Simulated scan of single mutants.
Amino acid sequence: MDILSEKIKKEVISFFEKNIKDDRIELYDIVFRRERRGWVLRIFIDGDRVGLDECVSVSKLVSNWLDEVDIIPYENYNLEVSTPGANREVRSLDEFKKYIGKYCKIKMKEHDKYGRINYKGYIKDVQDNYVILFVEEENKNFEIDYDKIKKANLDVKF
């Protein structure tokens, strides 16, 4: 991430912490980058009952603030506020703990001690540095070393 993107991200985080964050809404992620259609500031919010109304409210607050402080040096950019969605990335052991009981896809950096590289199952527990995943099709728990996970996402099982 370049210096400008990092500066904008820090400013938005500071504004969010002072003006928006409460026990219902938390900041999940911020991305500021150039895309084919131009510059985009994407803010992802999360919480137990965060939906369209909260996204619209946060978008208005951030948009008004950005107009006042003028920290983005480009005349044209898009502001997008959304949730990370049902297939959100699980990025830390704390998030694995938060999502215990949820269905998850895990891709390993390399084949693990079970000879596997992919998993789909329910997050059963987190112990030390290990995620315990219950794979329903095999009726078995797998102990997965967090440091060897390449990517993990919540998933919807049909």
Results as ranks from 00 to 15, higher is better:
Asp2Met: 12
Ile3Pro: 07
Ser5Gly: 10
Ser5Gln: 08
Glu6Ala: 12
Lys10His: 15
Glu11Asp: 05
Glu11Cys: 00
Ile13Lys: 14
Phe16His: 02
Phe16Met: 03
Glu17Val: 09
Asn19Thr: 09
Lys21Ala: 06
Asp22Glu: 08
Tyr28Ile: 01
Ile30Gly: 04
Val31Leu: 14
Arg33Gly: 12
Arg36Trp: 05
Arg37Val: 15
Arg37Asn: 13
Arg37Lys: 15
Gly38Ile: 09
Trp39Tyr: 14
Leu41Thr: 00
Gly47Asp: 06
Asp48Ala: 13
Val50Asn: 04
Leu52Phe: 12
Leu52Thr: 05
Asp53Lys: 05
Glu54Asn: 13
Cys55Lys: 06
Ser57Lys: 14
Lys60Ala: 04
Trp65Ser: 12
Asp67Trp: 04
Asp67Arg: 02
Val69Ser: 02
Ile71Gln: 00
Pro73His: 06
Tyr74Ile: 02
Leu79Gly: 08
Glu89Ser: 10
Glu89Ile: 09
Val90Gly: 03
Arg91His: 08
Leu93Trp: 11
Glu95Ser: 03
Phe96Asp: 02
Tyr99Met: 07
Gly101Val: 00
Tyr103Gly: 02
Cys104His: 03
Lys109Val: 05
His111Val: 10
His111Cys: 10
His111Gly: 13
His111Thr: 08
Arg116Met: 11
Ile123Arg: 00
Tyr130Ser: 03
Val131Tyr: 01
Ile132Glu: 00
Phe134Ala: 02
Ile144Met: 02
Tyr146Asn: 03
Tyr146His: 02
Lys150Ala: 15
Asn153Arg: 04
Asp155Tyr: 08
Lys157Asn: 14
